[in-house]
Design a protein around this nucleic acid. Structure first.
Lengths: 344, 344
DNA sequence: TTGTAAGCGTTATCAA
DNA sequence: TTGATAACGCTTACAA
């Protein structure tokens, strides 16, 4: 456990090379004779050398840091995205400074200042609080995921397509009435597309439908209460009709499903259910639940790739303001399980 | 969007102070007259100054970084721990460099090298692959969570107590036979305590019991298959007896519960179920499931506090090897829901 | 209370 | 292929 830090100077002395040559050994080894490479390699071992990347950043400006701001990690969606982002380390070598902003604008703004102070090379933002305009103004490469993205490059699920898929599947189940339950998502947020897609598909295929857009509360208990009320309402209003219910996410779908099971012991013939996200609960539910699956791995991978591309562009001298935002869209995958008919 | 970086030199020139005074403004403002503080504050605005923490680290050695190594973020337990760790930012100001090692020893070792190269001040390790001995040898403050911890300070749930609690609750439910289903956890891993606690409690209260310890597979589908087999076995062997089943985690408990519900439409009188973790699935299950709740917030908070304490000790000059590992234990909380009797 | 000057451990620019 | 030397932007004795 040597405590004194070994530096290039020490290695240089030990090997009778100059500091510069040691640096070259790390950054451009082929510019040394292979014999000298070996000498230095051996010295590193003898002296138990350890890199100091901080000094490196200061000298060359590249931190190899990417900042990530998520709203929280409580929701599976965010933690899985982060999971996938982190696993890009092996491919690109970028390290991730992660903040959970908890939807607090002031805190998130402070986080960003900190990140900038550490010379991060780029930023991936999932949090919603700070406008894309402000994000863009920081003048560093940025990619946002599934949020308002007018002035930033972004990766989003094709929510519209997801809504269409859900409606079509319910239509094929011979439902008499299609219902979409969601909160009143603002138009600027990509998830709004789910509503529009559902609506357009219903209209196009002439499917009777109803949109239920309202605040469903912030906690699981609140969600449950709100959805139970809706369930009672639907059950009365559409008695005897087969109801195809498209819920905004798998948690909602699970709540709805559980209520039916508790009531009847099985999924009644006049109910069909589909959720959104393909989060674990959809598979682990008492009846594995059909869902519009977000391809989280693809979303995260694309986001990192786009960011890396932006970073290298910027290195090649392009000013950060000069490029137009690119919006990539990832197609969702319809996952048919047991809450919709097996029929193709 | 000023592009040239403003440095202390610029501010010094602008205000006719020296670089040092500017530095003092940030690190020890009270050593300046309040008038001069104002002058500098204004200059920062005029010049649009931005800190460079990299230079600061190089100069004073304190990175304010803590490294975190998790096995993955797919499991709710890890992502929630990380969530709580990240939220300590507001309290201590430490920034977190996060790696998901995916249980790959070589990769995790490389991650640690990287972290050391960035001058991290400490490390929180949840991953299992690298022995506590090796971790300790790196000579920086370390706290491990819920893993082998012979040579590192650690925070663990009181798994033994959890096992006792589970057995006691099932005992109070007038179960004729108590069963614990788990994998064969090695003794060095804290979670082993769940088995021992269950066993000792059964013996102490003279409760008939059976331990089922076997590989349950790595995926949800594999878990399900393995647990269904066990369910069939138990159902035959203990027909007519009331079975109290303690499963190693809530995911297993949910699988078991779902099978019973699918079979009967309700939870049969001769089954009582309790899981472990208090992960969301226990609340969201078709029948809210009793569980031994890990206090994740407390675990994470304690881990960060212990680490911060170690860091400041080290600053006060104590050598890192000189302290004895401290093992903190967090008591689990029994959460009674609907899969065990309501009786107190 | 303020200033001078020597680091911190790299990389980058020239020169040789 | 190698080496001197000046950055990089901040902190920290030590002086005043």
């Amino acid at each position: 456990m040597n405590c004194k830090k070994v530096t290039f100077d020490d290695i240089a002395q030990y090997t009778n090379f100059s500091k510069t040559t040691i640096s070259r050994y790390f950054n451009n080894p082929d510019s040394l004779t292979s014999k000298n490479q070996e000498i230095i390699a051996q010295a590193l071992i003898d002296l138990n050398y350890r890199q100091n990347k901080v000094a490196k950043i200061l000298a060359n400006g590249r931190s190899e840091f990417i900042g990530v701001i998520v709203p929280n990690l409580y929701l599976h969606y965010y933690s899985e995205i982060l999971n996938q982002i982190l696993s890009s380390y092996e491919r690109f070598g970028y390290k991730f400074l992660v903040f959970a902003g908890n939807s607090n604008e002031a805190i998130e703004r402070r986080c960003i200042q900190e990140l900038l102070a550490y010379n991060i090379e780029g930023m991936i933002v999932l949090s919603h609080t700070i406008s894309s305009g402000e994000l863009a103004s920081y003048g560093i490469p940025i990619v946002t995921i599934e949020r308002e993205d007018e002035y930033t490059s972004s990766v989003n699920t094709d929510n519209y397509m997801g809504g269409v898929q859900a409606a079509s599947l319910l239509g094929k189940c011979h439902c008499d009435i299609l219902i979409h339950i969601n909160v009143d998502v603002p138009e600027a947020v990509p998830a709004h597309g789910r509503i529009q897609g559902f609506l357009d598909a219903c209209i196009e295929h002439g499917l009777p439908h109803e949109l239920i857009l309202r605040d469903l509360g912030d906690s699981y208990a609140a969600n449950r209460e709100a959805l139970w009320k809706i369930a009672v309402y639907l059950n009365e209003k559409y008695e005897g009709k087969r109801k195809g219910i498209f819920l905004a996410n798998d948690t909602y779908a699970n709540i709805f499903l559980n209520r039916l099971i508790r009531l009847h012991g099985f999924l009644p013939e006049d109910y069909r259910i589909i959720g959104f996200d393909n989060s674990p609960i959809s598979e682990e539910a008492v009846i594995p639940t059909s869902t519009v699956g977000q391809q989280i791995d693809k979303i995260a991978k694309t986001a990192v790739e786009m960011l890396v591309e932006q970073i290298s562009e910027q290195k090649r001298g392009k000013r950060s303001g000069s490029r137009k935002p690119i919006h990539t869209v990832i197609t969702p995958v319809l996952i048919k399980r047991d809450t919709t008919d097996a029929a193709e």
